[in-house]
Design a protein around this nucleic acid. Structure first.
Lengths: 352, 352
DNA sequence: TTGTACGCGTTATCAC
DNA sequence: GTGATAACGCGTACAA
């Protein structure tokens, strides 16, 4: 007994067979009360915990759902002031999974890095959820031959050849359209510029598309390319601000590809003496918590982060039920949240 | 081949034995290049992913670390504005685990609820990390007979009989001492009250102890019990504020057991016309992100959340290396962060 | 109601 | 360098 106890140890100690132990544990089959007592006593004394590996192997299911998300900070320990937008995705998924009796296994990784980690998770799960830009698509298509795979917030179809991946995406284009139209119709802006994210970002691209559509619908000139390029970080936003200031007359309104960028731009412009929203209106995208507590509070488009997670679990379950169904894409609605930075008055809501 | 492919399928397709497939996968044994190619081709064609269950069973280790944390919101989906202090613990642990080649399996649960979930995680992990008040201590001692268990932010020894649990705790008492002494020595306060958390909270208790020690050290009268009782939520803080206002002359300074409470109190007092910190100074505890962006920014004691996670992994690894060592408790230092709500000037740091 | 014995998909230990 | 084969610990027919 130098090692961890097994069913055999429990059975021996209780004077029964391993099958009986198994029955007591599952509770699905009838066991005489005195027998059950003996088994439970043995379990308590030995500190027996069933081996998940053996159980999963025999049952051919694991009761685990995997989640892969990008590691944004690399290997260094962060200082404690960062909150990632996918924290809530994790929680949403965990909660939905638990309701369905699943545990969640998580793994962060850089694209094309940590292949073994990802495969390890995939091999131990009944289904896999992957955030965009975390795992190369070919590997996902490989994994999808074994278990259902759902991609979150990725451009459906991008780089896929087998079309076996389900998708949960958000209404990027609609959101950008709404916020842009709001600036035009509600605040009478006509010199509006778009601050993009990284050039290769599909999210940024879709949002720019919505931006253009709004300009077009309102009869304003439509740029073929974004006027400015950030990189989804506040630092990048700051750089954009410098560029704007250097170029002479700044636009009267800036639609930023995400909140971080907007915050960086806003802070830098304010430091240069411009007032937001009086001199320049600014909007973001994502709905990170910080934006709500800034002064001025940040007008944005809120993504339903928690629902991304729960919806992913839904799709996983559906596909387990019907593996042959054609691959699906669910687009989640976003919510336009006008706040102070676009010129609307500070919301009445308390800060906490 | 209607089902998921196994080593046998790969071996057959590649015209080799299962042992060779295993060798190619592990990369630990020499395999002739042409052989390897054939195997890799078969793997790609079949979409083969090794079964974690079988692997773990054979290897008698899982490469997974478990993490149990409390589910604060129960079963309802939250609105998207909540950030929990343990999000960062999760990330810290995930990162440390990954550096050591482990994946992380998470499970939220209410105390004494979801027993099967917790046992399931324990049975699939090489080590378990548990946040305080998540799993009943007797069950943890049971699990600890199988795999190492580390408790986070719990009162070491509380309710334990076997003393097999390792602990990572934070310097609650020291932190509360520091913040209280700061109010006395730096801001000349002498009418300070403590706003406790739930009566049964060890954290709240320890912080109150530090509060008392500071009063005592400075020659001020020492209360035997906290003057006010919140419940660690902003709503609870609001209620405390009402009580304070109803009772006549409010204290000149309030040391709150955590940030949420402090924020609730602060907002409610301000709404009643009191100024913070001029009329009443307020301090929190935890260092949640929101406190930094409030106006006035919240003076607090910052817990090293991320390090809780990394340290837990450290302890786990140490115990795996030496299972017989006496149980350990590591106390992590906290950092006193004076900001505006205690009377210090707004920090120069930018909001983003 | 309880016991026996086989299979689940790997890894590892032998021989070849 | 490669191929048989025996564990690993648990479900679960099937038999008793």
């Amino acid at each position: 007994m130098g090692s961890t106890p097994t069913v055999y140890d429990v059975a021996e100690r209780a004077g029964v067979s391993t099958a009986t132990v198994s029955r007591v544990l599952s509770g699905r089959n009838p066991v005489l009360s005195p027998t059950r007592e003996k088994v439970l006593a043995a379990i308590a004394e030995l500190g027996y915990v069933p081996s998940g590996a053996a159980k999963d192997l025999a049952a051919r299911r694991t009761g685990v759902l995997g989640l892969c998300f990008p590691d944004l900070v690399g290997d260094q320990d962060i200082q404690g002031d960062a909150t990632y937008w996918y924290d809530e995705v994790i929680r949403g998924m965990e909660r939905a999974a638990r309701r369905s009796g699943y545990a969640v296994m998580i793994a962060a990784s850089h694209e094309s890095d940590d292949i073994d980690l990802v495969l390890g998770v995939a091999g131990r799960s009944d289904g896999l959820v992957v955030l965009a830009h975390t795992v190369p698509v070919p590997m996902l298509e490989h994994i999808a031959m074994r278990i259902p795979v759902v991609m979150l917030a990725a451009q459906p179809g991008l780089g896929e050849v087998a079309h076996v991946l389900d998708h949960v995406s958000v209404a990027n284009e609609t959101g950008a359209y709404e916020v842009t139209a709001h600036l035009i119709n509600r605040h009478d802006h006509d010199r509006i510029a778009f601050v993009a994210g990284p050039p290769e970002s599909p999210d940024s691209f879709r949002r720019f598309a919505g931006f253009r559509r709004a300009l077009d619908a309102c009869g304003l000139p439509v740029p073929s390319r974004p006027e400015f390029h950030g990189d989804f970080t506040t630092v990048g936003g700051r750089r954009v601000a410098e560029q704007i200031l250097a170029e002479g007359t700044p636009p009267r309104a800036l639609v930023c590809a995400n909140d971080q960028t907007a915050i960086g731009v806003m802070k830098a412009l304010e430091r240069a003496g411009l007032r937001v929203p009086e001199d320049v209106a600014i909007t973001g995208f994502d709905g990170i918590q910080l934006g709500e507590h800034l002064r001025p509070s940040l007008t944005t488009v809120v993504q339903p982060m928690s629902r991304l997670g729960t919806m992913a679990v839904d799709l996983l379950k559906q596909r387990m039920a019907d593996p042959k169904a054609p691959s699906r894409t669910v687009e989640l609605p976003v919510r336009f949240e006008p706040r102070a930075s676009c010129g609307c008055s500070e919301a009445a809501r308390p800060a906490a």
